[in-house]
Amino acid sequence: MSMPLSETHLILAAAVCLAGSAALCIVGTRWRVAERALVVLAFLFLTGSMAVSAIRQAGWPLLAPEEAIIASAAGAILWHLLNKNRRESKWGSPLVYATVVALVIWGIARGVAERTPPTGDRGQQVWWLAARVALALACGAFVEAGSMALAQLVTARQRRLQALPEGETSRSAAESDNSSGQQALLPGLSLLTASLLITAVGGQYTRGVAWSWTRAESWQLLAWLFYTIMWFAFVLLGWRGRRLWGLAATGLAVTLAMLHAVGG
C-alpha cells in the first residue's frame, strides 16, 4: 500500500533533521558539516512542504493561516544559516532548532485542527502572498534572534555561576556590533514594516480599507512597536550585550503571540 507524499511528511522530515542537527551541535564540533547539511535539508523540506501544499490546493502558497507558522520556522532556519556568529554560544543552535521544531509541530497541529481554505480573488491573494512572505521572514528573524539571545543569556549566567571573570562573559559577542543575539533584529524590523505596509496598501487597493484593526493586524502593530523600541535602543542608544539580549528574548514571546494571532 503506497501513501502519497504530503506536506505533513515533509514537515516531519524537517523536524527530524533539525533534531539530528541539534544533537550533533551538542555532541561536539567534529560534526559541523553534517550538522549544517541537516539544517539545509530541513529548510528544503519545509519550503518543499509549502510548495506541495500550494500544488495540492492549486493556488498560491502561504495563504492558509497555519502556513504562516511553518514559513516562519523556515525563515528562522534561513536566518540561522546566514548568522555568521551562530557559534558564540554552545546552546544557541540547539535552542533555535528546538524553537523551530516547536513552531513546526504547532503549524501541523493547527493545520490538522482547522485547515482554512484561502479566500479572496487572485488580485487580493497576490497582496497577501507578498505580505506573508515579508511577515514570515520577519518572524523567522525574530525567532532566530530571540532564541540566540536567550542562549547568550543562559551562557552568561552559567559563566557567572562558574565564577569566571565578568569580562570573560561572551566577550567577543558583546564587543561585536553583530552579535548572534542581535544580527537579525534590524532586518526583521524592516521586513515587519514592509509586511505592514504591503498589507495596508493591498487592503486600500483591493477593499478601500488600509487598516481594519483585526486581531492579526493589531498584534502585528504591537510587535512592530516592540521592535521599534528596540531599534531606538540599539541604533540611538547603542544598547548591546545583556540588555539587548533580554529585549530580544522578550521579543520571542511577542513574536509567538503575533504568530498565534496571524495563524489563528
Binding site: P187, S190, T193, A194, L196, L197, A200, Q204, G208, V235
Partner: peptide
Amino acid sequence: FGRDPGLAIIFIGAILTLGGMSLSAGQRL
C-alpha cells in the same frame, strides 16, 4: 467612495521609515 488626503502621506511616510530603518541596519549610526 470618498477622499482621504492623508493616505498618500501615510504610505510615503511608511516607505521612508522602511528605508531609514533598513539603511540604518546596514550602516549603523
